[in-house]
Design a protein around this nucleic acid. Structure first.
Length: 130
DNA sequence: ACCATGACTAGAA
DNA sequence: CTTCTAGCCATGG
């Protein structure tokens, strides 16, 4: 019995008897983040809003806390706060990897903040085509 | 059930 | 402009 599990994937089995939300809050966040196209970024609030709980943007960030160890890889580096600040850069294995990944996708990062955030912003519920 | 924490956000001073 | 307060929901002790 694991004493510490960052990602409660085990709890993913805790489905609702009502048959509504089969997946936990985390997995929903993971799927949204994985839908973020390269070179695009989004905010925690946008993801939370897409899930229906826009007021729980904190949970989104918290869910991404273990995206580094789950599989498949989740581009958490494309998720920033509402102002485009890489608030979670320190949560990456090597701090700065987040910024490096963004630059690798064509997203310029200045002072830990995404340049042209409004232009590169991608709405998770707007359109998956892009 | 209660309290504390958290990669947030919006509003007020 | 900066700084603080309050609300928010989910998880863990």
């Amino acid at each position: 019995m694991a004493k510490k599990k960052i990602i409660p994937q085990s709890k993913l089995k805790k489905v609702n008897p009502s048959g509504k939300q089969d997946q936990s809050f985390f997995e929903q966040v993971y799927e949204i983040v994985r839908q973020i196209p390269s070179g695009r970024v989004t905010s925690y609030g946008a993801i939370a809003a897409c899930l229906g709980t826009k007021l729980s943007a904190r949970m989104v960030g918290w869910a991404l806390n273990g995206t580094d160890k789950i599989n498949p890889t989740v581009p958490a580096h494309r998720v920033v706060n509402r102002v485009g600040l890489l608030s979670g850069k320190f949560h990456f294995k090597p701090p700065g990897k987040m910024e490096r990944l963004l630059k690798g996708e064509g997203v310029l990062v200045k002072d830990d903040t995404v340049v042209g955030f409004s232009e590169k912003f991608w709405d998770p519920g707007s359109n998956v085509l892009m």
